[in-house]
Design a protein around this nucleic acid. Structure first.
Length: 645
DNA sequence: GCTGTGTTGTTCGT
DNA sequence: ACGAACAACACAGC
């Protein structure tokens, strides 16, 4: 038998340290060894990824490629611009591959894709080696030890984890890698079909597929320029080198590491942030979860005095991550949506997802059942709600790709059960696009947690956008950083600027006016509703939803007959009007839309959703951001661009 | 069936 | 600063 010719297929493990798949590949003693990344159109076009995460991903790829080259001048990350499903069969033949090695992926698409590749490899006589690696325990084993059920609580994770076994100690990075063999690419590239393109940030046509191995014929990592994506606005950078530096910084502060308690960290802190900022590295695998786990364990072993415990400790945070992976492992695609999800409570939120009942999956489009809710959603997304705490967080999310965990709680509660009564799936879509650390399992899980549809049920505990931030930031330094137009307002009004007398507004050079749709310079919008009124309405409705007690897989939830069960829970219009009257005091027109028929109101659609609904007539690039938002008569996007500077 | 606890609420009292 | 009431869910352990 000839010596192994091995492809190390990298997807979720952009690192050299503690890499089980890499080690398994090297253990084969290959005569030829290629580190390969396939440029999957599913990610390039069909996953919502903002400019900051594109930057972070390509940072990780470039850093890994450089690190490989340091080990062997002839080697690097071979980034090939084609879908793995069509590429690998050709590559197996052209490079005479004997083994394909990769880290086990966890999300439903990843599992489907890998099943296709494994089959193709077997047909080509290529041996496949799959190594679990990106979670503490293999999520499928965790489910098995949890009696075949999804992991829904931290105690279940701890119990099942004990049964699965010890968490492996991290391995160090290899000191050398074998030469690659031929890099002959004399086969046809299967053209990629870009439509529909979910990338709202894409400014120009994507060119990353123009040549199979890149514009210079060197397998290089694509630039944002090639992708047609504008420069990142975040300062946070990716790569294994960065990740290990950051981890060491955290671990060298032994007291911080040993006594970390999540609920006590401040969501208003910045530089340094009160949490580790390691989650994006866990997502892309530029940091090994075991390196993190055992690094903390080593500090705990030496620490004298009290240390924190799960679930609030650093290790507890990692356990929560495994919990969400363990829920998704069992529930599959349904975990990321309400309908057909038998563990997600059905709540008749506004703006619910459309579902394809054939595939039982969401289409990416949604029902605009209430124009008012759609407007609230847009104002939430673009940081123009008129609640400075919420707006500052949403602007931070967009600019930095990161917000503190408790900040995520605040905006998620506000959008769903504690304010807007809008489907958590709308919020999850926005987080998917903008978060550097977006992880589909954690995102879906946390949104269900915060919306009290799974994992958590105390819906009467509701975050106030005024009181909550005051606990850690009385003067609103955090708000002022992201809403600088409020910087000269007296501190006592910083979380409720609409209460500032006109004289104070004048002195501060800001007018609290307008509905956030077309903000004039020197203004900050009025709040889009009375918060305590909305909180009461939401809690009432949650109570009803809990009483009705439907889950996402219930036929009544799916076929729409749930409506009869919620008949007496309509919103009281009188309450709302009292707030609107109050807001008219200074003579400004109150523009909160009250178009109950929806007539004359052009629905705003997300780019990909629009394309998904129509039958593909849209030319790519036709659906520009500004055009899309003009449909609402709304120049929020204009505000966004301005604020980027 | 009862009781205590659950990573991360708010308001009001002392 | 701390504790209780608010109005009240789910689950584990007994």
């Amino acid at each position: 038998m000839s010596k192994p010719r091995v492809i190390w297929w990298i997807r979720t493990d952009l690192r050299l340290h503690d890499n089980l798949a890499l080690q398994a590949a090297l253990d084969l003693g290959p005569e030829a060894f290629w580190p390969v990344w396939t440029w999957d159109p599913k990610y390039v076009y069909r996953t919502r990824v903002g400019c900051n995460r594109w930057q972070f991903l390509t940072d990780c790829q470039r850093n890994l490629s450089e690190s490989i080259t340091k080990l062997n001048k002839k080697s690097k990350l071979f980034l090939i611009r084609e879908a793995p499903q069509t590429l690998f069969p050709k590559l197996f033949k052209a490079w005479k591959i004997t083994h394909l090695v990769f880290e086990k992926d966890t999300d439903p698409y990843g599992k489907d894709r890998d099943a296709v590749i494994i089959k193709a490899a077997q047909e080509a006589g290529v041996e496949v080696i799959v190594k679990h690696g990106r979670t503490l325990w293999d999520s499928d084993e965790l489910v098995e030890k949890n009696h075949g059920k999804p992991l829904m609580s931290i105690s279940q994770v701890q119990a099942a984890g004990l049964k699965v076994g010890d968490i492996a100690r991290p391995m160090s990075a290899p000191i050398s890698v074998p030469d690659p063999g031929t890099t002959d690419m004399s086969f046809e590239q299967q053209p990629s079909i870009p439509k529909p393109d979910f990338q709202r940030d894409r400014e120009r046509q994507d060119k990353s597929y123009e040549k199979l191995i890149g514009p210079n014929g060197d397998f290089a990592v694509p630039t944002l320029e090639e992708l047609g994506i504008p420069a990142a606005t975040s300062q946070i950078r990716g790569g294994e080198t960065e990740a290990l530096k950051q981890l060491n910084k955290i671990l060298s502060d032994k007291k911080y590491t040993a006594t970390f308690a999540k609920p006590d960290t401040a969501p208003t802190a910045f530089e340094p942030q009160s949490t580790t900022l390691l989650s994006p590295h866990l997502h892309f695998g530029s940091l090994s979860i075991r390196e993190f786990w055992w690094g903390v364990q080593n500090v705990l072993k030496e620490h004298k005095g009290k240390h924190s415990e799960p679930p609030t400790s650093l290790l507890g945070q990692l356990l929560f991550r495994d919990m969400y992976f363990g829920a998704q492992a069992k529930l599959g695609y349904s975990f990321n949506q309400t309908l057909y999800n038998d563990h997600c409570r059905f709540v008749p939120w506004h703006l619910p997802s459309r579902v394809d009942h054939e595939t039982k999956r969401v289409t990416g489009d949604y029902h605009i059942d209430s124009p008012e809710a759609e407007e609230w959603f847009q104002r939430w997304k673009w940081g123009r709600t008129g609640f400075p705490w919420i707006d500052a967080l949403m602007r931070q999310l967009r600019q930095e790709g990161w917000i503190h965990h408790l900040g995520r709680h605040a905006v998620a509660c506000f959008l769903t059960r504690g304010g807007c009564y809008i489907s958590w799936e709308r919020g999850a879509d926005v987080f998917e696009e903008w978060l550097l650390d977006h992880e589909s399992a954690c995102n879906a899980g946390n949104w269900q947690w915060l919306s009290c549809t799974a994992f958590y049920a105390q819906y009467y505990r509701c975050y106030s956008p005024i009181v909550f931030p005051q606990k850690t930031d009385k003067d609103g330094a955090f708000v002022i950083r992201y809403c600088p137009e409020l910087k000269d307002l007296p501190a006592k009004y910083i979380y409720e600027p609409w209460k500032a007398p006109l004289q104070d507004q004048k002195k501060a050079g800001v007018r609290i006016t307008g509905d956030g749709k077309d903000p004039e310079k020197g203004t900050y919008p009025k709040p889009m509703f009375d918060f305590s009124e909305r909180r009461n309405i939401c809690i009432e409705r949650m109570k009803t939803a809990y009483k009705v007690n439907l889950y996402g897989n219930d036929s009544k939830a799916i076929d729409g007959t749930w409506k009869t069960l919620f008949a007496d829970s309509a919103e009281g219009p009188t309450e709302r009007n009292s707030f609107k009257d109050a807001m008219k005091q200074d003579g400004d027109e109150d523009n909160i839309q009250q178009d109950d028929t929806g007539k004359g109101h052009e629905a705003v659609k997300e780019k990909g959703e629009e394309a998904a609904e129509t039958d593909g007539d849209n030319k790519r690039g036709d659906i520009g951001g500004s055009k899309r938002k003009r449909a609402l008569g709304c120049t929020l996007d204009g505000f966004v661009r301005k604020s980027k500077k």
